[in-house]
Design a protein around this nucleic acid. Structure first.
Lengths: 197, 197
DNA sequence: AACGTAGTACTGCATCCGCAGTGGTGTCAA
DNA sequence: TTGACACCACTGCGGATGCAGTACTACGTT
């Protein structure tokens, strides 16, 4: 098993691109070699099985999707309000648009996890941690709304993202930014301060 | 090209099972033969390409997901209200649970559509029609909430379903029925009576 | 010089698709 | 009733593809 971390990351990034552009169907060790522009057989040296590749892709995606700490801190300087929540969600949408490959690959992994117990366990752990973190962040920051609000926003945003990834034209009549504002306005309780409606 | 409709449907149903259990990766004409327990080569006689199989699977799923007309009529006897909307959404959840294979296959098709223009067009048409129908139904029935409400409910339900299909344990702390009631309560306007446009 | 890694080439294996040929069954007309 | 025809199920093979794995060489660093 090779140890070159940079090369491994390059292979994983290539795997993400393959997943996004060719789908789970096209993800083979050879395809990763090709996408990463390394000699055939290289991926075999770094990942024993396809399963191992998938597992490591998972954690790589996790790295890539983690929001930038400083930008987040910057955004949070504002006073907590429904508007601020909308801003945060729009930033999430922006991150998604900036790295669609990771999100598409994550969708592929979701489906693949349906048939792979280890991957399923890892994905569940990942999403659970993320949702819990979201809830905790929201409450700690004093943003309006309770746990259930956060979960509902999470679900609506997930639906929004899934649609935008796979059938973007569907929501064309409803600009996504407007939808985000609407969902915040309706799901969160009317806030005493700020918050247009 | 063979014309036996019953056999074709059986093959398509088998293809849906393959998609759900093996994923897009495992969907080949031969795999469909095996799943349908028909001789190898049969699927080739019914579908020229894999693409044609996918297209027909799409319409077959559409058939399978169409709600039962009479049950719907039965439900709609009640007076229009937010509660009624919650009931309808719970019935949707029930249908999903009763035919997870179709929903999983549909998710696979969504991703596959990312790479197949024809399929993408068809999927967009399908979802657009469905969303429009939902909006129309909602408004015509005098249910509370406007177009945007319906879209938001659609998105939240999509997120709910995606999560339940792929990482069901994630939402274990939040019973889905409760989530549905919460989303209806918050997304729809406080129901005095009837819906405004 | 030795070890780890990159790069290359080759082998073996699995599987897939497409086609063509064969046999069986149902239908229609005489 | 019988015979001809059309349709369909099924089998088996040819050709091709594509993948994983491995052995071997080259390189560079220590």
């Amino acid at each position: 098993m090779r140890q070159n971390a940079a090369r491994r990351t390059a292979l994983l990034d290539a795997a993400i691109e393959v997943l996004a552009h060719e789908g789970s169907r096209g993800l083979t060790l050879r395809a990763v070699d090709t996408a990463a522009q390394v000699p055939k057989g290289t991926a075999t040296n770094y990942f024993a099985h396809r399963a191992e590749l998938l597992a490591q892709v998972m954690t790589r995606i996790q790295e890539r999707l983690t929001p930038d700490e400083s930008q987040l801190a910057d955004t949070m300087r504002e006073k907590p309000s429904a508007d601020l929540v909308a801003t945060l969600l729009k930033q999430l949408l922006g991150r998604m648009r900036a790295d669609r490959s990771s999100w598409l690959a994550l969708m592929e992994l979701r489906l693949e996890a349906t048939r792979r117990p280890e991957l399923h366990a890892e994905l569940t752990r990942f999403f659970t941690a993320q949702l819990d973190a979201n809830v905790g962040f929201h409450l700690d920051a004093g943003l309006p709304g309770d746990r259930v609000s956060v979960v509902l926003l999470y679900l609506a945003m997930l639906g929004l993202i899934v649609d935008d990834l796979t059938v973007p034209d569907l929501l064309a009549p409803y600009p996504l930014e407007d939808l985000i504002e609407a969902m915040v306005a309706r799901i969160l309780p009317p806030s005493d301060q700020g918050g247009e409606r």
